[in-house]
Amino acid sequence: MDSVDTEQARTFLAVVAAGNFVSAAERLHVTQSTVSTRIRTLETLLGCRLFVRNKGGTTLTAAGRHFQKHASTLVRTVEQARHDVGTAKGFRAAITIGARMGLWEQFLIRQLPELLAKAADLSVRAEIGVEADLMEGLVEGRLHIAVMYTPESRPGLKVEFLFNDRLILVSTRKKRRAELDGNYVYIDWGPEFLARHSTSFPEFFGSALTAGIGWLGLQHVLENGGSGYFPFRLVRPHLEDGKLHLAPGGPEFTIPVYVVYPADSDPSITGPALVSIRRAADMEKAPG
């Protein structure tokens, strides 16, 4: 009998991460029929059904839940082998950490020197992505740790709350009251932010510029003028030097930040990074 290969395991994990065959196909850049064929072949090889398909997407069967851990191990082993082969001489292993750009800035980036110093035998790879990319990377084993706003609950992954990010409305012009004018830049901080933003500004139907990366939106505002919602830790220096001003009466939003990692991860690899990330989170939670 043929054996399960990494392509089939990766396709299985992509369906788990995406929640349905269509989205999994988009992530893998293949057709839906290709995904279906790979899953059917995998189910034939294993002699069991892995998914139940319904209107809401796909749900793992009991056999599928058992196989997920093996699929993750298979893909992770191949990825680890690739990392080990590519690990720079003199390092024991490599760790890959992913996060949104806005969570690297003034947060994770500050802990990298400490991590590199305290875990001198590890080489670190830093990646940027949105929640869907980060979750997929964790499920497939490409990422050891990911920091994000809205993680999905997936078997085998541990989700840990870090701190609440404080989003404030700032502008390059002093305003008498908070308003979303023609120079307002909408930053996509995720579904939680969208829901709260829509409730607070029911008459807002979109802006001329929408940015998926906070850094890009902030640079545009600073260079061309305008306003937008940004984490306080990002704009604090600009508020202090007068380049930005707090919009009076503007509602503030808080979005929880989480760190996600495999429950069975090797503590000798992920441990030092998690300690640094938690320390950074404690600094964010401290008054002032």
Rank of each mutant, 00 (worst) to 15 (best):
S3N: 12
T6M: 05
E7Q: 11
F12I: 09
V15P: 03
V15F: 03
S23L: 11
A24V: 04
A24E: 03
A25H: 07
V30M: 10
V30Y: 13
S33G: 12
L46Y: 10
C48H: 00
R49V: 07
K55R: 14
T59Y: 04
R65T: 10
H66R: 14
Q68F: 15
K69S: 12
S72K: 06
T73L: 13
Q80Y: 09
Q80F: 05
A81W: 06
D84C: 11
G86P: 00
G86H: 15
G90I: 01
A94W: 05
I95A: 03
I97F: 09
G98Q: 05
A99W: 07
M101E: 15
G102V: 02
Q106P: 08
Q111F: 11
Q111V: 13
Q111S: 15
L115R: 06
D121Q: 11
S123V: 11
R125L: 13
A126D: 00
V130F: 15
D133N: 07
M135I: 12
E140W: 03
G141H: 01
Y149W: 11
P151V: 07
G156M: 02
L157D: 05
E160T: 12
D165M: 07
L169E: 02
S171W: 05
T172I: 06
T172L: 10
E179F: 15
G182Q: 13
Y186R: 00
D188P: 01
E192L: 15
E192C: 10
F193L: 08
R196Y: 10
S198P: 02
S200R: 11
F201D: 14
E203M: 04
A208C: 06
G212A: 03
I213F: 12
W215R: 15
W215T: 14
W215I: 12
Q219C: 10
Y229P: 00
P231L: 04
V235P: 05
P237D: 13
H238D: 12
L239W: 11
E240M: 08
E240R: 11
G242F: 01
L244E: 00
L246G: 01
A247V: 15
P251A: 03
E252V: 02
F253M: 14
V257T: 13
A263N: 15
A263W: 13
D266S: 11
S268F: 09
I269S: 03
L274V: 09
A281F: 00
K285D: 12
P287Y: 11
